[in-house]
Design a binder for these strands. Structure first.
Lengths: 216, 216
DNA sequence: GTAGCGTCTCTAACACCGTTAGAGGAGGGG
DNA sequence: CCCCTCCTCTAACGGTGTTAGAGACGCTAC
């Protein structure tokens, strides 16, 4: 059976996980497929558009449009969606970089529509809902990107000097590291950090909606 | 006079503005400086570290540590800082990409310390302050990145088909575009969009501070 | 049966990339 | 005068994305 574009994209995703974005070359990909490099150009216009397809593949799970359960709080629903999206990025190597450079495709439309509708249904003005989606999306990609960049840096530098800074010059840092000391290793809870930011944003959305600041 | 590393970084910044990250090659940079390509390796270890220096140069204006004016609200101060940072990224071509892949340098420490101190002074716990900085930073870079990616896409695709979607299938979008119609062109107010997200986050911080200070 | 055609893959090559090896000129200090 | 350090050079290596163009396979039509 002849090669399919889906085969190419699949292999690209696998190879991306294995060697990262830097190591993902068309020649290497072709070798993986047992094919010569120019052959790929029959299936794909361009490396860039190949990466667009890869990005789409990485996010495709997110596009099962799942409306909120009846009676479910819009905030809970939104938090769940955003967290899923974050996880999808973070669990695939260099996914944030690939997705960031991506042209959005038609396929994402129903998902956006779904979120838009839910927020409007919750009482937001359409422009507010739109801005909220954008804001949450930007937070997600920024967080994922920063985490993955840091992760890659660490594996690259490996034995860098410890972060022994001058406690006198940077007292706030000193206080912080004391508090952070009893957490696990480097950037242990990147997801917790992301969720903290997400929580701030959701709280802001609640305020915007005019909800009583609920919990007491 | 012999070439300096600062000369190289300067030229790299200029060239980046001119041809973008894709077009920024060492050979091209060397030509710009009237020098052969391997010469650059005497001044700079690596292309990657060159980009680190470029990133630092791009952000250096942000590191004038300006404490809040006496009586100034911490939120106003924070908003101002974040907006400045966003502008610094957005006004330099591909700056978000360069900065995102960057190793943070020692030089950024005093600025972080300043923000940390201000937030703690306003009543946040150190870990809250830390998470807040991270969250705002991620929002800034995510927003800048997305905007610049979109901008580059537009110049690349130029005459794409209009966004004439099926209003029946996507009613929320239809309502939105109707509202958005009387704004100026494509992504007119990216900064307003960013500030909307920032405002949400600051509102969330306010809520958090209320909880922390006066747990009802 | 064979001519044609679309589908898929190939080899060869182009222009460019980051990077290394190693030679050499220019200037100052002993 | 010699040496040494700064700074720049040419030559080259192995890689990259991408194009040109030839050719093999299978189907369909005459």
């Amino acid at each position: 059976m002849a090669l399919t574009r889906d085969d190419v994209v699949d292999a690209a995703v696998r190879l991306l996980a294995e060697v990262g974005l830097e190591g993902l070359s068309l020649r290497r990909l072709a070798r993986e497929l047992g094919v010569s490099a120019p052959t790929l150009y029959w299936h794909v216009a361009d490396k860039r558009t190949l990466l667009d397809h890869v990005a789409e593949r990485l996010l495709v799970d997110q596009w099962h449009v799942t409306p909120p359960a009846p009676g479910e709080d819009w905030a809970d629903w939104l938090r769940e969606r955003a967290t899923r999206q974050y996880r999808a990025l973070v669990t695939h190597r260099d996914a944030a970089l690939v997705v960031a450079g991506n042209r959005p495709t038609e396929a994402a439309m129903p998902a956006v529509e779904q979120v838009l509708g839910t927020l409007v249904g919750a009482g937001f003005a359409p422009t507010q809902a739109f801005a909220a989606i954008q804001a949450v999306g930007n937070l997600v990609i920024g967080s994922a990107l920063e985490y993955q960049a840091e992760r890659e840096r660490d594996t690259a530098v490996d034995a860098s000097e410890g972060t022994a800074h001058d406690a006198a010059r940077f007292p706030q840092h000193a206080a912080l590291t004391a508090v952070l000391a009893d957490r696990s290793e480097h950037g242990a809870d990147h997801e917790a950090l992301f969720r903290h930011g997400l929580e701030l944003m959701i709280a802001g959305l609640r305020v915007q909606l005019g909800d009583a600041v609920a919990p007491a």
